[in-house]
Amino acid sequence: MDRSIATDLGEHPDGAIFTSLPRWGQVNAAQTLAEWGDCRAASAGPDSVAALAGCTPVTKQSGRHRAVQFRWACNKRLRRAITTFADNSRRTSPWAASIYERARADLAEHGAAAALLAPNAAGG
């Protein structure tokens, strides 16, 4: 299956873009490409891709009350692919490793700490 994925990804016009990122991996790149889709016009920019992936928080405000919440309505498979890439990025990027370590020092669980990297991995 891995060979089939690598072959199909190599034949896709955007395959080289998705596999050029460090520590992305063939399977993760293929999953991200499949979930993101071919219609780039549907995404206004990096922020909309991050929102589509559920990697940006939702801010709700009414009067004096303001709450920042986790985004539940999103493409969960795309979020998984982006957060996997974000988690892998901390192994080669000092910047990402620093953010991750600070979050862990603040007692964030691994998943929450890796999720903090995802908005930047998605471009948001």
Rank of each mutant, 00 (worst) to 15 (best):
R80W: 14
L33T: 09
T56P: 02
W36R: 11
W72T: 10
S43K: 08
D47Y: 08
A53R: 01
L116R: 15
R80Y: 09
A96L: 04
T56M: 10
F85N: 00
T83Q: 03
W24Y: 12
A50H: 02
T19K: 03
V27L: 12
A29C: 09
T32E: 13
N120G: 07
F70Q: 06
A122R: 11
P94I: 10
A67N: 10
G123T: 04
W95R: 13
C74Y: 00
A51W: 07
A44E: 06
F85C: 05
V68M: 14
I17A: 14
T59D: 04
V58Y: 09
R91Y: 15
L117Y: 00
F70A: 07
L117M: 03
P119D: 03
I99R: 08
N28F: 02
C55L: 06
E101S: 08
W95K: 13
A50W: 01
Q69Y: 06
D14V: 07
W24R: 09
H12I: 08
N120H: 12
D106V: 00
L9F: 07
A118N: 04
N88F: 15
G63K: 04
A97M: 08
D106E: 15
A118K: 04
H110W: 05
Q69P: 04
L33I: 09
Q26C: 14
G111T: 13
F85I: 00
I99N: 04
G124H: 03
G111P: 00
W95S: 00
W24A: 15
G124N: 04
A30V: 02
V58T: 12
L21W: 15
C55Y: 05
Q61L: 09
T84Y: 00
G123W: 06
R90F: 05
S93R: 08
G54D: 05
I82S: 01
A115Q: 12
A51E: 03
K76I: 02
A34M: 12
N75A: 03
H65G: 02
D8R: 15
T7A: 10
N28T: 15
A44M: 01
T19M: 13
D38C: 07
A6T: 01
D47G: 08
P13F: 14
A113F: 09
R91P: 00
A96R: 01
A115R: 13
S4T: 12
A108Q: 12
A29N: 04
R102S: 06
A105L: 10
Q31L: 15
G10P: 02
L116K: 14
G123N: 10
R71N: 14
Q61S: 13
L9I: 09
W72I: 06
I17D: 10
C55R: 07
